[in-house]
Simulated scan of single mutants.
Amino acid sequence: MPARANAVATARHFANVLFKRWRLSDEEQDTGALIVSELAANAAQHGLSDMTIYLTLHQDRLHIMVNDSGIPEPAQSPDSEADGDEHGRGLEIISALATSVALLRSASGWRTYVSVPLCRKSSAYG
């Protein structure tokens, strides 16, 4: 999908439909949707052209991966961020909800992996 701000709602909607089909609890759906929204927003902000979102359910884990075509930005010191109160907290929030988070540079951009524990073993079909 295009790496644009208006695609974030589409990504969240797609994720919610899939989470309901997988019969995740309301809390698990909310957590997954929040993570998808944050990662899609990051991809929309930093990606150059497109983003791809992968969602998989494996036993007691929800795996979320987002690829974007963004380029690395130079590191900024904390006091150089004028609006630090409003930006830059998404990965902190995701890290608090997930058991693992990995950001990897790929040949085409960035790849972010997130693994979220589920309260019970979920099945895509029952």
Rank of each mutant, 00 (worst) to 15 (best):
R23T: 09
S37K: 00
D60Q: 13
A33H: 04
S122V: 13
H63I: 11
W110P: 04
E81F: 10
H63E: 12
G70T: 11
T56V: 08
D83F: 09
S95G: 00
S115V: 09
T10L: 15
A102H: 08
S77P: 12
G32N: 04
L24S: 06
G109S: 12
A41N: 09
P2H: 11
D79C: 01
T56M: 08
G109D: 10
A41R: 04
A5H: 08
S95Q: 08
P74S: 14
A9C: 03
M51S: 06
E73V: 14
A33Y: 01
G109L: 14
G84H: 08
T99V: 06
Q45P: 06
Y125E: 04
L118N: 08
E86W: 08
S100C: 11
S106I: 15
F19M: 07
R120C: 14
F14W: 14
A82G: 09
A75T: 12
G126E: 05
A33F: 00
L62E: 11
R12S: 04
A11F: 04
P117N: 07
A11S: 10
G126P: 01
E81H: 07
V8W: 00
G32V: 01
A75L: 13
H46K: 03
G88C: 07
S49W: 13
G32F: 04
H63Q: 13
